[in-house]
Design a binder for these strands. Structure first.
Lengths: 348, 348
DNA sequence: TAGGCGCTACCGATTTCTTGACAGGGAATT
DNA sequence: AATTCCCTGTCAAGAAATCGGTAGCGCCTA
């Protein structure tokens, strides 16, 4: 059995026979490395082990600049290495298919490579890098410059713009600024971001959701706020209730919510909250519940704009014919949640 | 006979066919307007009619600020000109509503202008320019992916669906299609549309002509083509010669024409081109010139189907008794053109 | 002959635009 | 001063386009 202790020892030895077997992530720096990385070794208490770089990425770590753990095997083509390097160096940059084309790459080819070697598309890969980097940024707070320097960044600009673009860009000038707190938590269906205001929880969503950046943008706009890392008076209750939910011991939530939106959206979300644990309704039924039977499309759309997963249970709405149709966190999570609520799933 | 009562009714209807025919002055306010002015309409007892703005001015009235009756034709605002220039120069550029906003424009205002003057929204206009550009690139042997990205699309799929929307065919399958280019220009007698094929100019007509839609439909049918806004190799010569014409410095045109029609129509149009600048003939005379003296009605009909105004001078044909009878661009324009060619009109 | 490549078709819980309704304001008119 | 008219800017809801993603089809070639 490969225990954490054994892996830690391999790490200290820089044992190359563990290359490809595990990845080590360092909680204090938000960086993950190969077992053989030449950088200074972390304390045992600060490490987490993952099997693959993908997992580390999903949990919010960024790849080490020294050992480049995303360059899996030696057979990573040079042009891919270059791309990865580039994204790591300036995570706020978005490389679109067009940009790939400009450099003479066939976007399809790149996508196929990432899919094969990292099990995600190139675009998803970039999205996670962007948010992870910005988030790690915030956690380091005033130590920003030090961190940036240590990690070999030539300048702060990449870091700063990455951080600003996603969390801190002022929506309007000189208006009263509010603060939204943000934190990352772990759940059995993967890591999630939680956000809270004075009044309550304003976001709870999966870290790999495609809409994530849009959601942050909307929140900033609605609240005329900046998003900052750190605690919020509602987080402990939320986490407690979520744990209970995932233990199968909680069916409804009491933590206060603060979910701004158009009147129509709000009424859709209110309707969603009336669907009981373990039950499902169709989009059509939902619109009928709202007294607007013809607004099926609009309702589905508003469901999709729900920023508070699980608590506002948009996963309980499925197609008329019983198919799952869609879910922001991915269909597999929708399936998992429904199975779980029906008691068909036992957690380890 | 054009009585005051008739003019007053035209005024209430804002009848644009009287544009250029009379000017209305309001005794109680001392202001004079075009027949189509959008301001609140005066009482019948308070109006005086004049033929020209000059007369009204001489009688001590001032021009209305809304309809600006001193400007012969409504002019394209400079900021619109700039926008059109920008996208013509670089069709691959996409100006989003948000970009307009950043430049201090109200996207809705822009949209409304294009809707009114080009009969399509600004976005649609841009899209058609881009697709036009893409079509040309592909005709010259470019690859689809390159064309897509160079034409301002960030994704192949987006390009494909957009392209298919317009041509009904996927990019590589549309080699056999034709494109007619279209542009809006301004002249002293109002805005006109010009269209061109590879071979020459196939249309030149006033934007407010009633038959316009029919003309476009015919062109599409004749050439088995799609009409797209964009430049054409014959446009610059056409515009140069038109400017010279309106400066009074040009009496015949050399720009190549491409005017499909029935044999009879073609021979009618050929005959028209033989009528010299500044002269008029009657319909009867025209049919005699063709050697078909009894076909007066058919000839008049074919005149009406002329799609290339001014260059094919159907305005030079009038009734036997000297009355103007009819003209697609409106009688006032026919009058204006004849007066102008006779040197009875000084511009400005 | 498998695998790379360029392309198209298809999907949709994304993004952007379009539309229609409405309020505010300027100009002409009573 | 009040009224009429319509141009503007704004906004939400709904429509349409674009994008990101997947599958798979021919074609080429190692």
């Amino acid at each position: 059995m490969l225990t954490d202790r054994k892996m830690y020892n391999a790490l200290l030895r820089k044992d190359s026979s563990f290359e490809g077997i595990f990845i080590v992530a360092v909680k204090t720096t938000g960086i993950f490395c190969r077992p053989t990385c030449s950088a200074r070794k972390p304390k045992f208490g600060n490490v987490v082990f993952y099997k693959t770089p993908k997992e580390a990425l999903q949990h919010g770590f960024r790849p080490c600049k020294l050992c480049a753990p995303l360059d899996l095997a030696a057979r990573t083509p040079d042009y891919i290495k270059k791309l990865i390097k580039e994204i790591s160096a300036n995570p706020s940059k978005k490389i679109k298919d067009y940009d790939l084309f400009l450099r003479g790459f066939e976007p399809n080819k790149i996508r196929r490579w990432f899919k094969k070697n990292h099990n995600m598309t190139f675009q998803t890969f970039q999205r996670m890098m962007r948010i992870n980097n910005a988030f790690n940024m915030m956690q380091s707070g005033e130590k920003v410059s030090g961190t940036a320097y240590d990690s070999g960044y030539g300048s702060l600009s990449g870091f700063n713009s990455s951080y600003k673009n996603i969390f801190n860009e002022a929506p309007t000038k000189s208006k009263a600024m509010n603060v939204i707190n943000m934190k990352r938590i772990e759940t059995p269906v993967g890591p999630m971001y939680i956000c809270g205001t004075e009044k309550g929880i304003c976001m709870l969503d999966f870290t790999d959701r495609r809409m994530l950046e849009t959601e942050f943008k909307e929140l900033k706009k609605y609240f005329k706020a900046v998003i900052l890392p750190g605690d919020n008076k509602h987080f402990s209750l939320l986490e407690k209730e979520l744990n209970e939910y995932f233990d199968g011991k909680r069916k409804t939530f009491t933590v206060p919510l603060d979910a701004p939106g158009t009147d129509f959206q709000k009424s859709v979300w209110e309707t969603l909250k009336k669907i009981p644990y373990g039950k499902t309704v169709s989009y059509k039924k939902e619109s009928e519940m709202m007294g607007k039977p013809s607004a099926v499309r609009a309702v589905a759309n508003a469901n999709g704009h729900n920023r508070i997963s699980i608590i506002i249970p948009c996963h309980r709405v499925i197609g008329e014919d019983g198919t799952l149709t869609g879910y922001g966190g991915g269909l597999w999570r929708k399936q998992w949640l429904l199975d779980f609520e029906k008691g068909n799933l036992k957690l380890l």
